[in-house]
Design a protein around this nucleic acid. Sequence first.
DNA 1: GTGAAAGCGCTAACAG
DNA 2: CTGTTAGCGCTTTCAC
Lengths: 350, 350
Amino acid sequence: MWSNLLSGQTLEDVAKRAGVSRSTVSRVLNDMPHVREEVRERVWEVIRKTGYQPNAAARTLASQRSWTLGLVIPRSVSSFFTDPFFPRLTQGIAQACNEFNYTLSFFLVGTKKDEEMIFPRVSRQGMLDGILVQAGQTGDLLIDRLVETNVPVVIIGRPHSPSEASYIDIDNISASCQAVEHLISCGRSQIGTISGPLNSTVGLDRLAGYEKALSAQGWVIDEGLIVEGDFTEVGGYTAMQQLLKRKGKLDAVFAASDLMAIGAMRAVREVGLEVPDDIAFVSFDDLPIATLLEHRLTTVRQPGAEFGYRAVETLIDLIEHGTKPARRVIMGTELIVRDTCGALQKSTAG
Amino acid sequence: MWSNLLSGQTLEDVAKRAGVSRSTVSRVLNDMPHVREEVRERVWEVIRKTGYQPNAAARTLASQRSWTLGLVIPRSVSSFFTDPFFPRLTQGIAQACNEFNYTLSFFLVGTKKDEEMIFPRVSRQGMLDGILVQAGQTGDLLIDRLVETNVPVVIIGRPHSPSEASYIDIDNISASCQAVEHLISCGRSQIGTISGPLNSTVGLDRLAGYEKALSAQGWVIDEGLIVEGDFTEVGGYTAMQQLLKRKGKLDAVFAASDLMAIGAMRAVREVGLEVPDDIAFVSFDDLPIATLLEHRLTTVRQPGAEFGYRAVETLIDLIEHGTKPARRVIMGTELIVRDTCGALQKSTAG
DNA sequence: GTGAAAGCGCTAACAG
DNA sequence: CTGTTAGCGCTTTCAC
């Protein structure tokens, strides 16, 4: 009966209609105490009838709280839109934001120019209550700039510069070590690796895990068995071709991502070799596609959505309880044994 | 030398330091005329030195403009995080937002409860200058609610209810028709289809294109050759198994997405049939993976990033020049002929 | 060309 | 329990 949605209603209007003051309406709106039940209901009634919606900007300005979180993807994270891992991460983040009633703003830094345009928006007061930023490459200073900003920040992935920043990560070293150990326990001894980009901590850590496992056997690291990849299918394919040049001395590969393992297996198939008989594979991610391939991937499952969810929880903790001390959250992984490592085959046959 | 980043500086502080009034600083900040060049530079100098950043909430409140766009994914769009098409779309949207200096807020409606939580946030005054919403399924009323809100809205995909809402889409009917015509021109005549969900316009339209192509030949539509899919790999696999029950009468399939074609080809391989010799395929999307398969996909390329970019442009147009008349943007597609349709093979052999 | 003053719509002391 | 009163930090007339 009264004017409807978004007709520019204000608290004042609602107050007048309900015959109370602005403060009372504000109290009702924010579920605060000290309002008679009868009045509270009268006010709600008016709010409902008028379709009144509080103005977000005014609320933010007055309360110094925007209920908005920023998700920043640095320029150096080029795989954000191609690596299937990220959608899962984003999903978890979005879900947590919904649950905790935050809005999620998305800052994709595509170019150097973008960075200069975006940074002011991100660091602006009154815009964001906190920031989630994906760890990128060495030399990408965006994260450091963000941290200096004094807005609560949680880094997704281990940051390069050991600062007092909060971050959330998985234990890439242990997980990779375990993956390679599995290969060893399957009887493989000439194990190569296709690493992630070595200018990222995730690439570095997974390589470190590989080396750790070999060293634990007392084996010496053969640099020729290490090829740097880029987390893409094509990168895995190319890297495998490198590795195959020394075939005969290679019976297994640890790939730092499922996508690279898929590319690598394509290269293996092309030269007429068999997976897992000739070359066994263990990789990382456990993408949905892992079980749909001809040879189902033995791979390290890392939390995707849960990871994002937890990152948001951590950030909200910083917002509500202060940024010090820095939080360090390490989430667990799990080795999923399937076909590509040859373990199941063996136990079936043997 | 003066205090730095985010120390709670205000326009007032800057004005004082520069020896001018707030109005002048505001003019400088917003590149407005009527400021002496000398003064302008003095003010910029202070801004730079102090690291002052204007408060976004205050600015939004005073100017009634948030420079923020919302991207809403309705509950019924469950494939958002699994279909590789969406990342490309999002990328284009994010890029356009950067270029036009808008911030992108992301609303993922996961559950019915989410919808009730999110709707007020989205429709709230002072929060969003405009909304991009992905078209969902029939019966999903979110879009209609959003349109009623009077905030400028652009629907991504053709909406179900023919309202005066603005939308952007590709010509799914023509594109699908062309795809099936190609199959016909390759000499196939027993053509089945794995459709998208038939409660979505995109599913409906691609099926309509399939039927149009057959009808144009004077052929009668065989309902037994139509199986509904869900745009996923597994859905394609299952649908193909249905179709294969009538094999011998089937020499080609039009799949409404690449992912479904991949699943379908898996099913074909499992029963020992050959692609494209026994069954030819044409699909839709042209995902990056299309060229990495054993049989490279013949598929309809639809704009991904460009689509998102254009959606943002359209929305900004609505914001700046009014929502009437409604804009209808239809983007082009292109049939990419590769291996799965058998055309190349044939021309090589013949 | 510049400044004063009045809001934008809300929250949050502080009285009562 | 409720209302009054200040702001939050900026934009935007309107004088000068």
